[in-house]
Design a binder for these strands. Structure first.
Lengths: 219, 219
DNA sequence: ACTTTTTTTTAGATTTGTCTAAATTTTAAT
DNA sequence: ATTAAAATTTAGACAAATCTAAAAAAAAGT
């Protein structure tokens, strides 16, 4: 079956919100999509009749397994295109989201299959987020954010959850990118900032706000 | 300014029809877009208020210079994506039109600039049609179709105006592709068929119907 | 437990792009 | 020059997706 751009955007946003809370509220979805709660209610009735969500009036909603599969397919398309934009066309990673947002709705399965192969079957997108496979299987990367890492531990940056130009600017300044290895020296109790050391560079201190957006794994 | 997918499709179709006749009729455009004449009239009023077409009731219409520039930009996007699909993703040329039809509406100028550079600034798409440049300049390739070529002349295939799988099948069978060199041996008066010789293959006869879709230039 | 606030839904309107059927204009035919 | 046929436009309706304003339900506060 084929879904409209609008339907796909709703499905994808519900998916993303469900990463944080099991069931999603009308307001939060309206906020995510920059639309009005009334519009959300309208669309949710539609998604319910199409049997993609579980929805009870006033009770919130969540994707059922069909909806989830569709969401993962959209996420797959989005992340493959992001990979393409960064690794083939040379975009900076803070510029690709909006373009991938449009490309993800191009509805050819063959296209995505070939794109995947052309890109050599990447496992993660440029922000370090895993790319679901054709069957909607997605790697769960056990990761912690930098604020949770004990002092003296070596870690590898696996993803960054804020993709703004401002964030990118900071990360570049600190010489941090996906798969960069760094060592946590010390946590400061006063403001939660963290001193780290990145390879051959001098140690530096990053604010809690920045640290909270950097996800890492051990080894 | 930004145009809807629908508006872009109308603009592009008017452009294509104008290649054959200076002014375009409501019916022919409806036919091209698989829509109804009434819908065409509606959209044309809109394009007129947006000052993209010259339009007089019952008199047909044509793109003005603004409309023409926009059309050429859409054609540029379409053909660059077709080139990408064939030369990078390995699609056969008869499969790319519908996908490029969707990709062409993705509205990032930077994307197209980078795609162009990634593809190494191709001059023609996989069917041999010229790709307009950023300013809407398009090479006019002086070409004749095979039925018009005098016997004993050597020519190079520059484009093929029918992109169906059936046509591709025939061309493959005859070992004809874009930039193939061939020699016209003889025209048969009875049915307009043409005997040709392609490089080291044995001469063969192609029907007038096929010959009329193969465009060539000398040398 | 009752009231206030917040959240969600309904009702009705709007925009974009489309359609059918009827009316109008142009073109072709006798 | 009339009439018949074809092409085009208008009028009015419809579907998708959105909105505002009002009503209803749930949650929070006293």
């Amino acid at each position: 079956m084929n879904y409209s751009v609008s339907e796909e955007n709703y499905i994808k946003s519900i998916y993303h919100l469900q990463q944080q809370t099991e069931t999603v509220t009308t307001n939060s979805l309206a906020n995510e999509l920059h639309t009005k709660p009334a519009s959300v209610t309208d669309m949710l009735k539609k998604l319910q009749t199409k049997k993609l969500v579980e929805y009870e009036k006033y009770r919130g909603f969540k994707l059922n397994s069909t909806g989830n599969k569709i969401a993962l397919n959209i996420v797959r398309r989005h992340r493959l295109w992001e990979f393409f934009l960064v690794n083939k066309l040379g975009f900076e990673w803070d510029k690709v989201h909006d373009i991938a947002e449009e490309l993800e709705h191009v509805s050819s399965a063959d296209l995505i299959k070939r794109l995947d192969s052309f890109l050599n079957f990447p496992q993660t997108d440029p922000h370090g987020d895993p790319i679901p496979d054709t069957n909607g299987k997605i790697a769960i990367i056990k990761q912690q954010c930098l604020t949770e890492i004990a002092a003296k531990k070596n870690v590898v940056v696996s993803s960054v959850s804020n993709q703004s130009p401002e964030m990118l600017e900071m990360l570049k300044h600190y010489h941090i990118a996906i798969s960069t290895t760094l060592k946590v020296n010390k946590h400061f109790a006063f403001d939660g900032s963290v001193e780290i050391k990145v390879s051959q560079h001098a140690s530096c201190i990053i604010s809690q706000q920045v640290a909270a957006n950097i996800f890492v794994h051990h080894d």
